[in-house]
Design a protein around this nucleic acid. Sequence first.
RNA 1: GGGGCUGUAGGCUAGCUUGGUCUAGACUGCGAGGCUUGGGCCCUCGUGACCCCGGUUCAAAUCCGGGCAGCCCCA
Length: 482
Amino acid sequence: MAGPERKVWSENYSEWFHKVISETPIYDTRYPVKGTGIWTPFGFRLRSSVLNIIREELERTGHDEVLFPQLIPDYLLSRESEHIRNFEDEVYWVTHGGKTPLDVKLALRPTSETAMYPIFKLWINAYSDLPLKIFQVVSVFRYETKATRPMIRVREVSTFKEAHTAHATREEAEEQVRTGVEVYSRIFGELKIPFLRSVRPDWDKFPGAERSVAFDTIMPDGKVLQIGTVHFLGQNFSKAFDIKYMTKEGGYEHVWQTCYGISERAIAALISVHGDDRGLVLPSNIAPVQVVVIPIVYKGREEEVLKACVGARDALQSAGIRAALDNRRDLTPGNKYYSWEMKGVPVRVEIGPRDLDAGTAVIVRRDSLKKVQVQIGSLAEAVKEAFREIDLELGRRSRDWMETKVRKASSIDEAKEELDRRGGVVEMFWCGRASCGQELEKAIDARILGTPYEDEIAVGQDAKCILCGEVALKKIRAARSY
RNA sequence: GGGGCUGUAGGCUAGCUUGGUCUAGACUGCGAGGCUUGGGCCCUCGUGACCCCGGUUCAAAUCCGGGCAGCCCCA
């Protein structure tokens, strides 16, 4: 499928991304605080579309939305030792109320475990209160020391969807992890974002987790972006926060917990994996505007053309399609095409004098820019059919592209060369020892993503660790990452 | 964490070495009007900036110090 070029997109991704988010516009980076940004009206609508899909999936699977406070007292934040050890260098502190120094320092939440779990202790009394499954969408703050990047590495994560669950047994909580992974797989499936699911190595788990499963995607420049994580917390937090429930038998037991999160990185990925040199390309379910109708007015037939366009827009809207009419008089059609293409509107409808005479309209797909003429009476049907094709194509194209970026390597040199030359992800065999894993990271100058979620332990009989040469127990993935 | 570079209208760019002629630009955007409209038409008029604070100086976009912000490289 030809479509517009993806030259800048692939060769100068950083520039492309910045240009797209600022020109569309989606996200304004000019706010004078490092690592923050502004969601513009269009960007906010795009963000809402993504959140709607996330909310729908979570609510459908029994999660209730809540909202906890932003401020966390220092004694709570530091209660789980591993958790605080990993976050303490990047916490923002509120130390004053006006001019008065606070007796208890308050953290701007870097994540909400320590805000929520003392309250879980109050909410959970008996087994009948379990399972507890909640989520919230909030800003979290992390004082990033690495270079910040709009939407990708920020100090105020402005779109942090975090879900937290509590269960009676280890098995139930482990089952919830699998459910969480499936929920996220469906969400990214809806967004047509291809992903790899990896079990993070022990040295890169979420602070306080027993096990972390991560979703990664590959960006146009070949670097990997983490777009979601699902954590099994075991009883680490429930013991630290003393969250107990009374069992059927009358004894007390600490709950078993999970948590999982998605941030605006998912939106950065959505923008990046589908885009081309004309700007955004959006799946129809995400696009804030699904169809734009553009009148091709000629002198003498303005009224007639405009009337037909209004009719077309209304017909599309009554068919449940988010349609807009661009009747700005001072822009040429070409000008309008470019601006709506930048916004990623999946389908454009053109109606001009030729169409009036023939009783037709022209529809143009954003992904391929292919034009077809359809009968005006069946416009809505034709548009819906185009949506189906576009959505299929976007899913196929992004998945195929990612697959070309995942390679196997059987030696250190091969792995390093692959990463140097094409980026992406390399898969290797690994004995499972942390020492080998961390040495591997240094040797190939990459980050270990972990082992495939789907087949954590399945490797061939004669597989050897890429580093020490001993029997391999696992496959391991590595990549250059954001 | 270490090092380097940068900051001039909404965007992009020149000027900075050697302080004064620089309230710069045939660009783009934005506003008004005209002419147009099947891929960024054209014309006229208008609009807008030297990141912040301090210092040096008769004089600072330019030199110095600090802050804030951004980019790049290394760990």
